[in-house]
Write a protein that binds this DNA or RNA. Structure first.
Lengths: 249, 249
DNA sequence: CGGCCCATTGAAAGCACTCAATAACAGTGG
DNA sequence: CCACTGTTATTGAGTGCTTTCAATGGGCCG
């Protein structure tokens, strides 16, 4: 089994890699993120150093402070990355979904924890092994640099949000951003499925659940969004939402 | 002159590169950041794609939204990186000093502006040219990936600060962090020289100047810091400062 | 010495937070 | 299928931390 840690992993082609490559080729994340950088033939090498795993809702698969020995690539589902203060205050620093690469932002130990918001599938890469792959496939390193650069842009946008935006602006920014991310090409007024609770939204936006609820209510009263049950939200006025999110009025 | 844009820059060795390499060898940033990745012999290649520039206090050398055609490496001095909202609210996303690399966090356009806090010296690299250097010196790309990773860690730490910390905790965190960065090995109670104003401190910490002032006053009243004139601050109780910054009590 | 800018301090207001109660929902078992 | 129950979300009232507005103080420079 590809998950068996005792398998022979070195060498360009071996049974485990063949199995993994087949899995990789069928992977939901095959044509996004890291894996899209390689063609099918080269996927062997990446597959050879990948271990497939799963996590259930609520399961923590990265713990802040632990030695950062692995990278992760999300193949299916959504997880939250977060940092805690000793007294329980929590800041969610990001949500990661299908195709997203996790673990770049680490020195010797992980600077954040990760918890599955729903059942997820992911690949684990040993950091040193993946570095070995860089020599043969510099395109992977290039891709990782692009990923890191883009994450920095996102992080800086979030700093602006956390440092300077009002509650309503924060919620509007989140909805706008999530729509762009989840369905960039779809009808902008289509209903969104949010995998996170109000509490998690609050921890991401630097607010409390009550304030998030009130901000959503404010947007609803202006008929900018429609709030359904089961974490479904429809954006009725995408243009207005974007304007509010950018404080453009 | 190395600053002359008309010089011939291609080829492994040419006059401009020789001149730049000499400058590079003597550069204050020679043994930090990007440049430290190369030995003196290889510095030619990097020097060949570098343009040296300066900026005076208050001068903006990167403008948010402009096409991101260049990277920057600070050789001397300090600058602030910031994002603005249309109504004037500003968030400083970071301060960069000697040895720091700037511009990784950009898609097609810069996501932030940069302004010198004091007279600075820096190198400019054309993005496409620097990418060309990657092929010959993969270590540079590796180094940039490390830089980006570390910046992500810093950014996530800042998200925790902006989203969840109180005013006093934010100011304590900043002072603690700045001490570690400016003089990691020096006597922790030595006076710090802050190159930024209260206003810039406020824009970095997501506060107002008055709140920063009050937070500093609070730390002063506890004899944790001593506030001098001309942006000088001495840390009298480093342990207490660190404890407060991490909300560890 | 005067003017200007920056920093500090005080008083009042505002936005988000806390506390509290109610409502809606999801999952469970009868 | 529906009542039951625990969880999650909404709404209201009051508090508090930070902001806003305003005035004073201090340093730098012409």
């Amino acid at each position: 089994m590809p998950d068996d840690l005792s398998i022979v992993r070195r060498g360009p082609i071996n049974v485990a890699a063949e199995l993994s490559a087949t899995l990789c080729a069928k992977c939901e994340a095959r044509h996004v993120g890291l894996c899209d950088a390689l063609d099918d033939a080269d996927l062997h090498f990446l597959a050879g150093v990948a271990r497939r795993s799963t996590a259930n809702r609520g399961q923590v698969f990265i713990t802040e402070g632990d030695p950062a020995r692995q990278f992760f690539n999300i193949n299916h589902g959504t997880a939250k990355l977060y940092k805690d203060l000793p007294d329980g205050r929590r800041q969610i620093i990001g949500f990661v979904s299908t195709g997203d690469f996790v673990g770049l932002a680490a020195d010797k130990t992980y600077g954040f924890s990760a918890e599955a918001l729903e059942p997820i599938q992911y690949c684990r890469f040993d950091r040193t092994e993946l570095r070995g792959v860089f020599g043969r496939f510099p395109i992977i390193e290039r891709r990782l640099l692009d990923v890191a650069s883009h994450e920095l842009v996102i992080a800086q946008e979030q700093m602006l949000l956390l440092g300077r935006k009002t509650a309503v602006e924060r919620v509007a920014s989140f909805l706008d951003g999530w729509r762009n991310r989840a369905a960039p090409c779809a009808n902008p007024t289509a209903a969104l499925d949010l995998p996170m609770s109000r509490s998690e939204l609050a921890d991401f936006l630097g607010l409390t659940i009550e304030t998030v609820s009130r901000a959503l209510a404010a947007l609803r009263k202006q008929n900018i969004v429609s709030i359904g049950s089961d974490h479904r939200i429809a954006i009725l006025k995408p243009t207005r939402l974007t304007a509010i999110s950018q404080a453009a009025e």
